[in-house]
């Protein structure tokens, strides 16, 4: 198994400890697929008597099948291809993604998603702010900037992938939409695995964590999902407006919440540096580790903590295997 070279200055003891932790991780990882990872110009073993199809990232040179990219060899029936690591995001329908609006165009927003093209969020595939269902008029189109403006961070779902490769998004739920009061982190998309839940509300810390499948991760202050039924009630609508204006005035996040946001943010940075899969369990474990070891928030980014996390992860996987 390959491990990318980590760009951190270790002292001699840290280096030894880190290497031992990585060795243990490698011995724990399933041996079935261990020879499947290739680097450029590696030979991919194929049975030449059977017919096979050359897929992405492969090339035939002098009768041998060679890898042209780094990654993992995948075989589907006759097709042999290399699934690249560290590439751009490959969308699948139903993925929850976090992106940044880069353009407000006719009836649509263009969203940066670390995909080969920009994602398209149509005005018609958004719920109206007041929750009503109707055709969008030209007035709605003129008021698009009331919903999202350029640079806004939004959360949406992949609706479909068009034949020309462009990506359609939709945000037909209250949980999707604009994200505020927090920070956006970017990790390599392969570090995020698709799972049932991508929205996490860490109640003990009061934090919302959205792990987008495209490797964009949002860590922010928790916001209650507003019920659209409440908005229809005129009286409550006024209340909403007054409360929202008052929250705008005290835009400062409480210090404790902010500390939690920063701690989670740094935990994700550490995991991304180490090349570990980013899931909510691993993140909370890393946060707990930093708390129990009394590591200062900024000190989480130093080499010593990286080694600690690597050792912890090896230990965690060993325990998991035992069970």
């Amino acid at each position: 198994m390959m491990m990318r070279k980590i760009q951190l200055p270790f002292t001699q003891t840290q280096k030894v400890r880190y290497e031992r932790a990585i060795e243990r991780l490698q011995s724990l990882s399933s041996t079935v697929n261990s020879d499947a990872s290739v680097i450029v110009t590696d030979t991919i073993p194929v049975n030449h008597e059977d017919a096979f199809l050359k897929g992405h990232g492969t090339s035939e040179v002098d009768g041998e099948l060679l890898a042209t990219v780094c990654g993992v060899v995948e075989r589907v029936d006759k097709l042999v291809y290399v699934r690249t690591l560290r590439a751009r995001y490959k969308p699948e329908v139903g993925d929850i993604v976090v992106g940044r609006v880069i353009e407000v165009a006719q009836k649509r927003w263009r969203v940066e998603l670390n995909f080969t093209q920009d994602g398209v969020l149509m005005l018609s595939s958004m719920n109206m702010p007041d929750g009503s269902q109707r055709r969008r008029t030209s007035v709605d189109e003129l008021n698009m900037r009331n919903i999202f403006v350029e640079h806004d961070v939004v959360c949406a779902e992949v609706r479909s992938i068009q034949h020309d490769g462009s990506l359609q998004l939709h945000a037909r739920s209250q949980k999707y939409g604009k994200l505020e009061k927090g920070q956006l982190l970017k990790v390599d998309p392969y570090l995020v695995k698709r799972s049932k839940h991508h929205f996490h509300y860490i109640e003990s810390l009061g934090i919302d964590l959205i792990i987008g499948c495209n490797g964009f991760i949002w860590v922010g202050e928790h916001v209650e999902v507003r019920d659209p039924v409440m908005m229809i009630d005129g009286q409550k609508d006024d209340e909403m407006i007054s409360s929202s204006s008052s929250t705008k005035e005290q835009s400062h996040t409480p210090l404790e919440t902010r500390q939690n946001i920063c701690r989670i943010g740094n935990a994700i940075r550490v995991l991304s540096n180490l090349g570990f899969t980013v899931t909510v369990q691993v993140i909370t474990e890393t946060v707990n580790l930093s708390n129990s070891k009394n590591v200062d928030i900024h000190e989480m980014l130093c080499s010593e903590f990286h080694v600690l996390v690597a050792e912890n992860e090896a230990e965690r996987r060993r325990e998991k295997r035992k069970k």
Binding site: D152, T253, R258
Partner: peptide, 24 residues
């Protein structure tokens, strides 16, 4: 690029002596 919400968060953090990566 930085959205308005992020800008507020960033400036608030500087005012509170806790920047986005936990620094003073």
């Amino acid at each position: 690029a930085c959205s308005v919400g992020e800008q507020h968060f960033l400036k608030g953090g500087i005012a509170q002596e806790l920047r986005t990566d936990g620094r003073k």
